[in-house]
Simulated assay, not measured.
Amino acid sequence: MKIYSAEDVRRLVPMPAAIDAVRQAFLDLAAGHFVLPARQIFGDGAVLVMSAYHSPTGTAVVKKIGIALDQLPAIRATVIWTGAGEQIVADGTSITTLRTGAVVGVATDLLAPAESTRLAMLGTGAQAADQVRAVLAVRAISDVAITGRNLQRARTLVSALAEEFPAVKFAPGTSIDEAIGDADVICCATSSPTPLFELDALPARVHVNAIGAFRPTMRELPRSLLADASLVVVDRLEAALEESGEIIDAVNSGTLTPPDLVELGTALTTKPTPTARTVFKSVGIGPQDWAITAVLAAGPK
């Protein structure tokens, strides 16, 4: 058995490698190469168990997540990966933030304007840094506005990321409308029960990623944005219809129908040409965890 700490995960799986691995995992998912049981949810979302089996390689991953939004870190997880005669146990908290950032990198690379230079990061929690890292890995971003309810936390995150990316201008703030008014890409990573902004606060052409609302009672995006968007992409339709508050609300209200939603693997295969506003909504699925752990299993390049 090999055991990987959070530091090991970060050292062995840089963000560009994570994005490449997650992109291929979604292509494999679209090709039918994963067996993907429904996520098990306990205690109103306090404990999650998710798994995935990759049939071409005969490898599987299982992840247990504990979520306590009133604590730091809010997510604590462990990942177990099994292959032919090999087993890996890895820090699942780092894998979760890394793979969630990576899938946003995949979606942003596919859907955001190629000339994007301005990113608005809404949320300052554990997921935020990898959201920024992922977007910077796929677009030549020069300006990042980081917005949260707590200005000091926004400043702390700005300070850490500015040291990591000295060529990028970072600015902290608490006004969402100011942050998103001229953004090319927006990342939402909050536990908000209500939409973070209104449609008229957005530029006419913008790509929005939303990864924070993972329960039916949560909503980061307004219904009007989902109605207005030229393309709404989800990681997996079944998961979005069961867990995403925004998608559930939009479908129940008649704003969207399930056929209006495009799975990321399908979008990667068909290569859409986005126009106007686009949305990517992710609740997270097992193949993302499998992808990151498979990179660990492959060892250093």
Rank of each mutant, 00 (worst) to 15 (best):
R76W: 08
S51C: 12
Q71L: 06
P56A: 12
P73Q: 11
T59F: 03
A112L: 01
M50V: 12
A114C: 10
T57V: 03
K63S: 07
I67Q: 04
G83T: 13
A38H: 08
A46S: 11
T97E: 13
L98N: 00
D44H: 13
G101A: 05
T108K: 03
T100N: 05
Q40C: 14
A114F: 15
G105E: 03
A77H: 04
P113H: 11
A38T: 12
A114G: 15
A107Y: 00
K64T: 15
V89G: 02
G85H: 03
A68Q: 11
I75G: 09
V62E: 07
L111E: 07
A112P: 02
V62C: 11
G45R: 01
L72S: 15
I75T: 11
T96G: 06
V49C: 10
A102Y: 00
D70W: 13
Q87L: 11
G66Y: 09
T96W: 05
A114N: 12
G43R: 10
S51D: 15
A52D: 03
M50W: 08
R76S: 14
G85C: 10
M50S: 04
T57A: 15
L72K: 08
Q40P: 05
W81R: 11
R99W: 05
F34M: 15
K63I: 15
Y53E: 03
T59K: 05
V104Y: 02
G66E: 15
T57N: 12
A114K: 14
E86P: 05
I80Y: 07
I75Y: 13
L36N: 00
V49E: 09
T82E: 11
L48F: 14
G83K: 08
V106L: 13
Q40Y: 10
A90I: 10
G101E: 02
G43M: 04
I67C: 11
T100R: 03
D109H: 10
G58L: 01
I75A: 11
P37L: 06
G85V: 10
I75D: 06
